[in-house]
Nucleic acid binder design. Structure first.
Lengths: 218, 218
DNA sequence: CATGATAGTGAGTGCTTACTCACAATTTGA
DNA sequence: TCAAATTGTGAGTAAGCACTCACTATCATG
């Protein structure tokens, strides 16, 4: 998959929002699309409703007819992706961890590849999240509950088993998650925001997963 | 040092700006202080010049007398720290790498501790940078040139020596830097933005440095 | 003490902002 | 088929925005 494919990423977000809001009126759909791209490019605060309306080919009033306020528009873009797609993504990660044959390194690498594909699939939304999280406490809580909590609970069990069987030195799940997430997000930012170009995802992830697994051997 | 000490962090930034601008008129100093905190808390775009003036106890016109525009105010906060303090910080990192006795792990750990202390010293400015970098290309170039470029050049040599002597498996300097920086920034965000509280910096850094060093052994 | 420069401000300016509302067009369902 | 609901809009509105300007107060220095 082409990591920079915006059309597909926009379609994925649209599908998620449609799941939460029911069938979308055509201009409502256009507003979502335009807002998604504007927010991702310029940031929420620096994007005017006028510019969204212009990009969507819609009257400004149409935005407020469908979304009430600008803040609500943002939330109704972000929430469906968080609620309907990150949670199932967690299940996917659990399955990978359970099913993948081979050592810890292979499991970590597969998990990271799946999460990277997810971030690409919803690239503009990931950008919005990265920009807004530091200043928007509402989004903060949204992620804390639905994503981090679930992942830590899962990792607590999965890592516990590995540690019990002597394949992993003891490490608290939050720390493991923090380090893994830092490396993955850092890579995603480098590859798709700082220096877009030729990157070998598989190779880079294998390096990071190998580093983690080898570094955590007993 | 107390990582959350805002007074000291503000004083450090003020000193850096004073170095670039000469002795500061009292109200100019107040504006810098207020702007720094407002931008860090709310983000650049969402901060109004009125709110800065109010916080500084100053007329709004005073801001424009001293800084011309809001965009210029931001740049003149960020640039001195980038130019006068990050570059010498690089030298410091080089010295640590050259002087520290012991293995690679100890060197990496000392470098990371020094960088973490730096981030704490200029905490509000680091927050501003993290928020504005994705949407402000001007800051982008500022960091790319003065920080990343220099660090990569230095690491190219330092790592090259370690690799030549068989103490490190071959790894390109940018990748090494990316992974190390990701872990460190990820830790800083977790500790001072996501979940402030009791963190054992030394222990956490030792884990990360150990992971890196062990993971990169030949 | 006179003088020019610097520091500081209250009262604006024109423009942009998020948002409203009366009204028209279209779609829906009984 | 026709009324009710939904979708869409042009023309506003008040508040807020970054920024200007004429003017005063302070201050260093010949």
């Amino acid at each position: 998959m082409n990591p920079g494919d915006l059309t597909e990423a926009v379609a994925a977000v649209l599908a998620a929002v449609e799941g939460a809001e029911g069938r979308l009126a055509p201009k409502k759909r256009a507003v979502i699309e335009a807002a998604l791209l504007c927010f991702a490019e310029t940031g929420y605060a620096a994007t005017s409703t006028r510019s969204i309306a212009h990009r969507a080919g819609v009257a400004e009033a149409t935005i407020f007819r469908h979304f009430g306020t600008k803040a609500d528009l943002l939330l109704r873009l972000v929430r469906p992706v968080a609620a309907r797609l990150i949670q199932p993504g967690l299940v996917e990660a659990q399955e990978i961890f359970a099913e993948t044959e081979g050592n810890l390194e292979a499991k970590i690498a597969r998990m990271m590849k799946a999460r990277l594909a997810f971030a690409d699939r919803y690239a503009p939304l990931v950008r919005i999240l990265l920009q807004e999280l530091p200043v928007n406490p509402e989004l903060h809580g949204l992620l804390q509950d639905s994503v981090i909590g679930g992942l830590v609970r899962f990792l607590d069990i999965a890592l516990g088993e590995e540690i019990a069987q002597g394949r992993l030195r003891p490490i608290p799940a939050p720390r493991f998650l923090r380090i893994l997430a830092s490396m993955l997000i850092g890579y995603w930012i480098a590859r798709s925001m700082v220096a877009p170009g030729d990157w070998d995802d598989a190779a880079e992830i294998d390096v990071m997963a190998g580093l983690l697994a080898r570094g955590l051997k007993p």
